[in-house]
């Protein structure tokens, strides 16, 4: 999560005070990302140092100090908005590693391990979905954040479902050694 760019986005609508930025940051993320005051001010300092924002020059920690975005800052913000985050490298997903490891442990049924995680993830999805129930109080920002969480969790559950299906069909054998380097070569990602 780039606090720096989120603050630039807030300032793009007009000059603001530090305390105001903190409030608006939390509101703009559906109140799910609390931010402490120190973090706001240290980030603002860095932005000012790099010429992406300007202040009115009052004392550094004064709550009355106001900030505005510079043209440099606007350029940086636009560039950031349009740059895809790095999703290319296969993440070292802890859950994937747990499932792969479970396949190697003789006394563990890997499908039971999968079910433990599946249940946990569905329970998490239930909690997020409950936030949707009261549609009247459900603002747009929160709706987008909740959807993002639900789709993220859902994608993991889908993977677990697919893994469970594969395991049902396959007899778990140690991998044939020659296929391992081949697979590794295939999923190498250029940086």
């Amino acid at each position: 999560m780039s606090v720096r760019h989120a603050l630039l986005a807030l300032l793009s609508a007009g000059p603001k005070y530090g305390f105001q930025l903190r409030q608006e940051f939390e509101a703009s993320t559906g109140d799910v990302w609390p931010l402490n005051v120190g973090q706001v001010y240290s980030t603002l300092q860095r932005l000012e140092h790099s010429g992406q924002i300007e202040s009115d020059g009052s004392a550094a920690d004064s709550p009355q100090k106001s900030f505005r975005i510079t043209s440099e800052g606007r350029k940086e913000l636009d560039h950031w908005l349009r740059t895809p985050p790095d999703m290319t490298s296969p993440p070292r997903d802890e859950l994937v590693i747990k499932v792969l490891s479970a396949m190697r442990v003789p006394e563990v049924d890997v499908r039971d391990v999968i079910q433990v995680h599946r249940r946990y993830l569905v329970e998490l999805m239930q909690m997020w979905t409950r936030l949707k129930e009261d549609e009247a109080e459900f603002d747009l920002t929160l709706a987008l954040v909740v959807d993002a969480e639900l789709f993220r969790l859902d994608s993991v559950i889908r993977w677990l479902d697919a893994a469970d299906g594969r395991l049902r069909r396959a007899v778990i054998d140690p991998p044939i050694p020659s296929t391992v380097p081949l697979l590794r070569r295939r999923i190498v990602v250029r940086r």
Partner: peptide, 16 residues
Amino acid sequence: HDAHLASWAERVVFLR
């Protein structure tokens, strides 16, 4: 099969 749908339920029962 859809976890989105299931998550609306009070109780989710898993079949395997």
